[in-house]
Nucleic acid binder design. Structure first.
Lengths: 336, 336
DNA sequence: TTCCGCTTTTGGATCGATCTAAATTGATAC
DNA sequence: GTATCAATTTAGATCGATCCAAAAGCGGAA
């Protein structure tokens, strides 16, 4: 009776002995090899059950070159957008028996480097990375040197052309702008993000191109700050100008909700006098008042796609790199 | 020149050979042992640097009985509350060089069991668990059988008296009720959650006790549904009754925001005619209109505390179990 | 020179699985 | 009775670190 608590964990050799086979055979049973005879398999499995055997994947990993673990390094895990993305990754992983380390770079390239190093020591098979603001090609060079497969999500380190899952922000903004113009709005401002990572750039460029194509007057961009703040003074200034804007497209929903509050305090009717469109479709967007019209960027789907792409990359390290672009959708509610 | 790409990763033996010492000495350098002479340490470290050596923690783990990994199994990772909690766990871990597996039980005890089993195979040192609805003492029994240290967060499997970090919901609700009564509200309803886990029970009981103590009339509880829905029809019914409520305390902010929308559609002035108080203080609470008064449950702090408690438990498996209770704080805004 | 004690270094076993190549078994054919 | 062949099983090396007990180096005292 070796079903003790923990003094001596049951290992494969114990199982083999008890079942009267060799360690090698027991190992084959573990891996569902077709080599073992049905009767033997049955017997070994019963012994495993009886002894309460627990597979030690760590030991197996030492011998194989896969661990069935991946890393997910995000720039800010407390952002609801990223948590939904994480849930998507999780879902894809759960199906393939992969577990996921999570790490938060908190937008610090140094911390990000530390996290990646640490994960690497744990022999992750691959990495899903949303690069911290300020990351440069050295990150990619490091990953290459380590031979670590990776997929970038949402943001891309410029000029590296690797596996990448993103959202077609420009298309979403096009749709939003078209919607606003149809509703008769022409003076539209963009309220931005503090940084210049690829996602921020794509949104702003998408905005500028759409404005140009639609022949809209060009207004100054309202700058954003850290932690989803924006330049309130600049917004006030432009609102007080002789030709104030009639609508805003915001970098994301968090900013859009704040902008709505700001307009309300200035007694500007959101939805009537002024339209506001956000981006992401967080759950709080539908619960706001007025309910926020927003560009749904479907983080769950992004996460799933990234996890699957990473799995492909891991199994075929030499395959051509792939860029997946999720098409967002405008969700029209009351704010525009 | 062994600085190749990946064909043959550099291991400790390579380093030792190159530095002209034994594998054992190199290992001591790795662990900063005071046994090695300063000159030797220096030399070995330089060789490690030069060869681009990467520590293989997996190999070390096989020999030691620690992996410096923990598991975090949550009931719903896309909930912003839990993502902030995760950030707290991360922060405490980062400081102690621990990495964290994340898993989402999605409120399914079966899936939860599978996740725990999987993490166990990866030899995690411990587990932070927010038990899925419907989990029973078998989960605890399993963990005990595996000798796996764990800490429960926010919810507790009844009658197990183990390490546990939670929030004093009753105290928060007391404060909220006192605030309402001071403002002259007496007919207060509770709008609940669908389930009966310990956190849901604590909130409801806290509400009932406070109502009794303050001598308030007792109104029927509005039931909640899955995914933070609630029984809208029941709310309408009670609003239409002869003595309608003047305030609501909601299970959480997500429900509170939805309730505010509902009241608005019924032309009931939130903050003026009717007070609404939520719980958690999600970032969307301050951005809502009217800004939501809420009981801040400080998930970041809960996460940090849980991670630290787990570390204590891991280093001293036999120590007395500890229950940590975070005291919430009422954040008064416009909705009440 | 020998011996002691201290600091530093080391060989070899070990953790628990997988991998490889070879051995065993049993059935069938000659 | 022996050879052939496929289906099963196995011994032993291996992954890359840590642990232990023992060895080596070395300065000073007897």
């Amino acid at each position: 009776m070796k079903t003790d608590k923990q003094d001596a964990p049951v290992n494969l050799l114990d199982v083999a002995r008890e079942a009267g086979v060799s360690r090698a055979t027991a190992s084959l049973v573990l891996r569902n090899s077709p080599l073992v005879a049905a009767a033997t398999r049955e017997r070994v499995q019963q012994v495993m059950q009886r002894l309460g055997y627990i597979y030690n994947r760590g030991a197996a990993n030492l011998r194989q070159n896969r661990t069935n673990t991946i890393g997910l390094v995000l720039s800010n895990i407390s952002n609801p957008f990223f948590s939904t993305l994480t849930a998507g990754v999780e879902e894809a992983n759960d199906a393939s028996e992969i577990v996921c380390f999570i790490a938060d770079s908190a937008e610090s390239p140094e911390r990000q480097a530390r996290q990646i190093q640490r994960l690497r020591e744990h022999n992750i098979d691959g990495l899903i990375l949303c690069p911290a603001v300020g990351s440069d090609e050295r990150v990619i060079a490091d990953l290459d040197r380590l031979g670590l497969p990776f997929v970038q999500v949402l943001r891309e380190i410029p000029g590296c052309a690797r596996d990448y899952v993103t959202v077609d922000y420009a298309a979403g903004i096009d749709e939003a702008m078209a919607h606003l113009v149809t509703a008769g709005r022409r003076r539209i401002v963009f309220i931005g993000n503090f940084s210049t990572h690829s996602a921020a750039r794509a949104r702003l460029e998408g905005f500028n191109r759409a404005a140009a194509r639609l022949g809209l007057p060009s207004l100054p961009v309202i700058a954003g700050g850290r932690d989803n703040r924006y330049d309130e003074a600049a917004l006030d200034e432009i609102l007080a100008s002789s030709e104030p804007p009639e609508a805003a497209i915001c970098y994301n929903d968090i900013i859009a909700l704040a902008v709505m509050g700001h307009l309300r305090r200035r007694a500007i009717g959101v939805g009537s006098d002024f339209s506001v469109i956000g981006m992401d479709d967080l759950s709080s967007a539908s619960a706001s008042y007025p309910a926020l019209t927003t560009i749904a960027t479907m983080p769950h789907r992004v996460g799933e796609a990234a996890a699957r792409l990473l799995q492909k990359r891991i199994s075929r390290p030499a395959k051509r790199s792939e860029q997946l672009v999720i098409t967002p959708r405008l969700i029209v509610r009351e704010s525009a």
